[in-house]
């Protein structure tokens, strides 16, 4: 299992557009991926669940990945949060 803390570097937070990209990215991996904010954890496959967490710019979230391709998935998702998110 890989657990990573990430800061949201997009000023408007995780809006519909980045969440769409994130879900599609997560779908490409076999591992179970979930996202945790505060005491709430949701699976990274539902737009509604992620949006309902209201994740804002500057907040810290935790990504938990468990499965056979967790290393690759973790690298891709870290890249999404540190690089791609800024341009979405």
């Amino acid at each position: 299992m890989v657990t990573t803390n990430l800061i949201i570097l997009a000023p408007q937070g995780l809006h519909a557009r980045p969440v769409t990209a994130l879900i599609r990215l997560a779908k490409g991996f076999k591992s179970n991926i979930s996202l945790q904010k505060g005491d709430k954890t949701v699976k990274l496959n539902s737009m509604l669940n992620i949006l309902s967490l209201t994740i804002k710019g500057g907040e810290t979230i935790t990504i938990i990945i468990d499965g056979e391709d967790e290393t690759e998935a973790s690298a891709a998702i870290n890249h999404f949060f540190t690089e791609e998110l800024k341009h979405l």
């Binding site: 519909a16 557009r17 969440v19 769409t20 879900i23 599609r24 699976k43 496959n45 539902s46 737009m47 509604l48 669940n49």
Partner: peptide
């Protein structure tokens, strides 16, 4: 694109 994701939302 967002609509497509929402339409197929597992929840």
């Amino acid at each position: 694109e967002t609509q497509i994701e929402l339409l197929s939302d597992p929840e």
